[in-house]
Structures are given as C-alpha cells and as structure tokens.
Amino acid sequence: MKILVADDSRVMRQIVKRTLRQAGYTNVEICEAGNGAEALEVIVREAPDLVLCDWNMPEMNGIDLLTVLRAGGRNVAFGFVTSEGSPAMRERAQNAGALFLIAKPFTPEAFREVLEPVLG
C-alpha cells in the first residue's frame, strides 16, 4: 500500500504522516510532493494507491491536479486535506472526482473515518 502526501508545507506533510500512523496505518509506504506539478510526476512514477492532497499549493493546485489526472484517465483514489472545508469546496471536490475532503485541523479519527472505506 502506497500513499502520496502532497502539500507545500513540510510541517503539514509531517503532521499528515504522523496522523496516518496514529490512525493505525503504520504499514504503508509514503511518498511526498511539495506541489501539484511534483505530485503529478510522483503519481506517474510511483503509482500510489491513494493521494492525500492539499488544495492550495504553488505551481499547480490540488483541484487542477485532480482535473489533469481524471482528464488523463488516471483514476487513482484521491482525497483533499485542506484548511477550506465549506460545503461549496466539498461539492467542487466531489464533482472533480475526489472521494473525500478532510478539513484542517483534523484528528486521527477523522482520517480513519474516511480512509477505512478506501484502504480497508
């Protein structure tokens, strides 16, 4: 099981990885990207099972990344981890093909709740 964590903040990537472990996902391989363009390269190269992606990033933001992925026929499981969790953002994420949106700040329980249906 491989998960890509894409966020332009290094500390947030660390917090997401830490929260995954706290949620019980200790046996997963994690790769990282600092923006959407880098994430696209990693997805093509590493073929992760799940992408946990920030929305607001330089180079290419999360929603543009997801749009490019789906337009290119890549159906990798994709969820947002973002500070913006309004109903409009959630709807936009879902319409673009995201499975879920986790709003920051989050808890290990919030991760478990949305990841269990995806990762088991």
Binding site: S9, V11, M12, N56, T82, S83, E84, G85, S86, M89, A103, K104, P105
Partner: peptide
C-alpha cells in the same frame, strides 16, 4: 507559522 495562518484563514473563509 504560515501553515497556522493558512488553517485559521481557511476556516474563517468558510
């Protein structure tokens, strides 16, 4: 510190 203001600003934006 940037991530802190991003989270606070993002939640206020909602």
């Amino acid at each position: 510190f940037g991530e802190l203001v991003n989270m606070i600003g993002g939640n206020l934006k909602c």
